[in-house]
Lab assay of single mutants.
Amino acid sequence: TYTYKLTDEEASRRAEDEWRNRGYDVRVRNNNGTWEVEVR
């Protein structure tokens, strides 16, 4: 499981799409203004 911490929502969406396209399960959540993109 990888977790990315990003401050930019758009960057988190791009990361989400990119990993999803590669067949990974992705979750995005906002934690106090930081976007966490979790990849498994």
Results as ranks from 00 to 15, higher is better:
residue 13 R to M: 08
residue 24 Y to H: 05
residue 22 R to I: 04
residue 10 E to W: 10
residue 30 N to M: 11
residue 9 E to D: 04
residue 39 V to I: 11
residue 33 G to I: 01
residue 34 T to V: 15
residue 5 K to Q: 13
residue 39 V to W: 02
residue 32 N to G: 11
residue 38 E to V: 13
residue 4 Y to I: 12
residue 16 E to F: 13
residue 36 E to L: 12
residue 7 T to Y: 15
residue 2 Y to G: 05
residue 40 R to M: 11
residue 30 N to H: 13
residue 17 D to A: 15
residue 11 A to L: 07
residue 36 E to T: 10
residue 35 W to Y: 07
residue 9 E to I: 07
residue 13 R to H: 08
residue 29 R to E: 06
residue 6 L to A: 11
residue 22 R to S: 05
residue 36 E to I: 14
residue 21 N to A: 14
residue 33 G to N: 05
residue 3 T to F: 11
residue 14 R to Y: 07
residue 11 A to G: 06
residue 23 G to M: 01
residue 33 G to Q: 04
residue 7 T to P: 15
residue 21 N to L: 13
residue 3 T to V: 14
residue 1 T to D: 07
residue 32 N to F: 06
residue 24 Y to G: 01
residue 3 T to A: 05
residue 20 R to M: 06
residue 22 R to Q: 07
residue 1 T to M: 10
residue 14 R to W: 08
residue 18 E to Q: 11
residue 32 N to P: 01
residue 31 N to A: 08
residue 32 N to C: 15
residue 25 D to K: 09
residue 26 V to L: 00
residue 29 R to N: 09
residue 11 A to F: 06
residue 34 T to H: 09
residue 6 L to Q: 07
residue 5 K to W: 14
residue 3 T to H: 07
residue 14 R to T: 07
residue 13 R to S: 05
residue 23 G to Q: 02
residue 32 N to W: 03
residue 9 E to H: 06
residue 33 G to S: 03
residue 25 D to N: 10
residue 7 T to L: 14
residue 21 N to I: 09
residue 23 G to P: 01
residue 35 W to N: 00
residue 2 Y to N: 06
residue 10 E to Q: 11
residue 23 G to H: 03
residue 23 G to R: 01
residue 5 K to Y: 15
residue 2 Y to D: 04
residue 12 S to F: 08
residue 18 E to Y: 15
residue 38 E to M: 10
residue 1 T to Y: 14
residue 5 K to D: 07
residue 22 R to V: 03
residue 32 N to L: 06
residue 18 E to F: 15
residue 31 N to H: 10
residue 8 D to K: 02
residue 30 N to K: 10
residue 3 T to E: 04
residue 23 G to T: 00
residue 2 Y to M: 12
residue 18 E to G: 06
residue 26 V to I: 04
residue 29 R to P: 02
residue 11 A to Q: 09
residue 8 D to G: 06
residue 14 R to D: 06
residue 31 N to E: 08
residue 14 R to M: 09
residue 13 R to Y: 06
residue 6 L to K: 03
residue 18 E to K: 11
residue 9 E to K: 07
residue 26 V to T: 05
residue 8 D to S: 14
residue 19 W to V: 00
residue 4 Y to A: 03
residue 3 T to P: 03
residue 33 G to D: 05
residue 16 E to I: 14
residue 40 R to K: 10
residue 17 D to H: 13
residue 5 K to I: 15
residue 5 K to M: 13
residue 36 E to Y: 14
residue 20 R to V: 06
residue 1 T to H: 11
residue 38 E to K: 05
residue 1 T to R: 10
residue 10 E to F: 09
residue 4 Y to H: 04
residue 20 R to W: 03
residue 14 R to H: 09
residue 38 E to S: 09
residue 26 V to Y: 01
residue 29 R to L: 11
residue 26 V to P: 03
residue 29 R to H: 12
residue 32 N to H: 08
residue 35 W to F: 07
residue 39 V to Y: 02
residue 10 E to S: 09
residue 29 R to D: 04
residue 40 R to D: 06
residue 18 E to W: 15
residue 24 Y to C: 09
residue 30 N to E: 13
residue 33 G to E: 04
residue 11 A to E: 12
residue 27 R to S: 13
residue 13 R to E: 04
residue 38 E to Y: 08
residue 24 Y to T: 02
residue 9 E to R: 06
residue 29 R to V: 13
residue 15 A to V: 15
residue 35 W to C: 03
residue 1 T to S: 13
residue 40 R to C: 13
residue 10 E to C: 14
residue 34 T to G: 06
residue 18 E to R: 10
residue 35 W to H: 01
residue 26 V to K: 00
residue 35 W to E: 01
residue 38 E to A: 06
residue 4 Y to C: 09
residue 33 G to A: 03
residue 39 V to A: 02
residue 23 G to Y: 02
residue 21 N to G: 11
residue 13 R to I: 07
residue 24 Y to R: 02
residue 25 D to I: 13
residue 1 T to G: 11
residue 1 T to E: 07
residue 20 R to N: 04
residue 34 T to C: 07
residue 23 G to D: 01
residue 2 Y to I: 13
residue 30 N to V: 11
residue 39 V to D: 00
residue 31 N to V: 14
residue 32 N to S: 07
residue 35 W to M: 02
residue 25 D to E: 14
residue 27 R to A: 11
residue 30 N to P: 07
residue 14 R to F: 09
residue 21 N to E: 10
residue 37 V to N: 00
residue 18 E to M: 15
residue 16 E to Y: 14
residue 39 V to K: 00
